[in-house]
């Protein structure tokens, strides 16, 4: 313990606003626990950084190697003659088609989820009936249903409905499973919109649809962005529904493509990793453009 507590606490490092102690707000007021050095923590932080980045770095440099280079070169060296041949190979294998599939499925499922969830959240927050309270409990309970436990009956239903091996077969269950959390997050957010705003609109004769459209919707933008990102990423990365509900190669979405590509090209590791890189690029682009939104979307408000 003493080894760790080497930060000298010679004087109370008080922030001016602190009500507890009358100590004079010295010039070192900013010297707080958050500002102390922590070599042990830094070491741990660096170790984890290496664990995170080495595989990523390896993926990128390997995807630029030739097949011979993969077997000969030091795996962590920068490739001497980098090639984009692997990427060409991925593109030649229908990558853009799968990208399009992924975009269609993700957009469709996310829009569907948002539309029905927002309506439900609005009704639950503004509603007074017992049925709506009961609906909210259903969604809460729904959080506990593990998605994979339902794949057999979902497969059964989709097959019965003649939807097997279509993109719609992925969209509908993906949207359905995103609903509970989406509703709950939106409900939590909509609750914070003051009653008075609704009342004044109502006084002007606005109905529920207008209040929903021109009051609740614009005010819940931050929450909507958060859940959009969360839902979209989940669908985008979804693997199980595409795996069991589609079959033909031209219905593949990106995760399924990456998996099947590595099945077909087992020994061509650089090409496999090029597929990994290409399939990840859209999300990396999102991360660079809107890191803050992406982070809040990924934690879906759990970080609050």
């Amino acid at each position: 313990m003493s080894a760790l507590s080497h930060a000298p606490s010679t004087e109370p490092p008080g922030a001016p606003s602190r009500p507890l102690s009358p100590a004079p707000p010295s010039g070192r007021a900013r010297l707080r626990r958050l500002g102390r050095s922590n070599p042990l923590g830094a070491l741990g932080g660096l170790v984890w950084l290496v664990i995170v980045l080495v595989p990523v770095y390896w993926v990128v440099v390997t995807s630029l190697r030739t097949r011979e280079g993969y077997f000969e070169a030091n795996p962590l060296s920068v490739p001497t003659d980098p090639t984009l041949e692997n990427y060409r190979q991925v593109l030649d294998n229908g990558f853009t088609h799968y990208l399009l599939n992924s975009l269609v499925v993700t957009t469709g499922a996310t829009l569907l989820t948002l539309a029905v969830s927002f309506l439900a959240a609005y009704a639950i927050v503004r509603g007074t009936s017992r049925a709506l309270r009961w609906a909210f409990s259903v969604f809460l309970l729904g959080l506990a249903i593990p998605l994979q436990a339902t794949i057999i009956p979902v497969y059964y239903l989709i097959a019965k409905a003649q939807m097997y091996d279509t993109l719609l077969a992925i969209v509908l269950p993906s949207a359905a499973f995103a609903i509970p959390l989406t509703v709950i997050i939106l409900v939590n957010f909509l609750r914070d919109i003051p009653d008075e705003l609704y009342e004044s609109m109502r006084a002007e004769g606005a109905g529920h649809w207008r209040m929903l459209w021109s009051l609740a919707l614009p005010l819940s933008r931050p929450a909507l962005i958060t859940v959009t990102i969360y839902d979209a990423l989940n669908v985008w990365n979804g693997f199980l529904f595409p795996l069991i509900l589609t079959q033909s190669p031209d219905k593949r979405v990106l995760p399924l493509f990456v998996w099947s590509f590595q099945g077909e090209f087992t020994i061509n590791v650089p090409a496999i990793l090029a597929a990994v890189v290409l399939s990840t690029l859209p999300i990396v682009a999102l991360y660079i453009l809107g890191r803050r939104q992406l982070v809040s979307g990924l934690t879906a408000g759990f970080g609050k």
Binding site: S117, A120, A123, G142
Partner: peptide, 19 residues
């Protein structure tokens, strides 16, 4: 309050594929 109908699409979709 808003009609229960508003919550129905979400409930139906969720019920159909999860419940």
């Amino acid at each position: 309050g808003p009609p229960f109908l508003m919550a129905l699409p979400a409930l139906l979709l969720f019920a159909l594929f999860a419940l």
